[in-house]
């Protein structure tokens, strides 16, 4: 099992994020390695992504089933590999937020030295990113005024005898993917919001 969690903040009302996130088409292309997606109904969609597995890139096909639309705070989903022995689940959580000191976290269930190093790098880039976003955002949204935290969690469970090895091989790519998705969504909304630079 590989689990990664990433959160970032936005000077936006939580409802604004929800309005964006609840429509898959809005953010699908922000998934790292995105190739295509097809909505089967309100809750189910099939995704095609290119993902790094060790030294190679593989085209992965998943069915995603949303198990809970709990707007404006939460979307939870499950996923099933259609061409790989893999399953998983995850969630978007949006919360009103007033504590500016909190930082992004990238957590895994087993924290070795490598994972701690990855987290340190993630925090570094997060600080850079946040600085850039805050400079781009309008100055009239002060602390505590319409701020939200967006948290994205993804857990993947590779199956078959090689599962533990695949697990180790996909974890770095998952960390980057989770970070990218959360930051791209916030970056998009921060840039698009009325009055932004």
């Amino acid at each position: 099992m590989a689990e990664v969690e990433y959160s970032t903040t936005a000077k936006l009302p939580v409802e604004t994020i929800w309005d964006f996130v609840c429509e898959i088409d809005n953010w699908a292309a922000y998934m790292t390695g995105y190739q295509s997606h097809e909505k089967e109904n309100a809750d189910d969609s099939v995704w095609v992504l290119k993902g790094d597995v060790g030294a190679m890139t593989r085209t992965l096909k998943f069915r995603v089933h949303v198990t809970e639309w709990a707007g404006p705070e939460r979307v939870t989903f499950e996923l099933e590999g259609l061409n790989e022995q893999m399953s998983g689940d995850g969630e978007f959580v949006m919360q009103s937020y007033e504590d500016e000191s909190a930082e992004a976290t990238a957590a895994t269930t087993r924290k070795g030295w490598l994972q701690r190093a990855i987290e340190a790098v993630v925090r570094f880039f997060f600080r850079l990113f946040r600085g850039r976003v805050e400079r781009a955002a309008s100055a009239d949204a002060g602390p505590g005024e319409g701020m939200a935290r967006l948290r994205f969690r993804l857990e993947m469970r590779p199956g078959g005898p090689m599962g533990p090895m695949i697990n180790a091989m996909i974890k770095p790519a998952m960390t980057v993917a989770a970070e990218d998705l959360a930051n791209r969504i916030v970056g998009h909304l921060e840039t698009e919001r009325p009055g932004s630079a």
Binding site: G112, L114, P161, G163, P164, M165, N167, A168, M169, K171
Partner: peptide, 12 residues
């Protein structure tokens, strides 16, 4: 094969 062991090594 022992993929638990290999997974630990890859992570490290």
């Amino acid at each position: 094969w022992d993929y638990e062991l290999l997974g630990q090594r890859i992570a490290a």
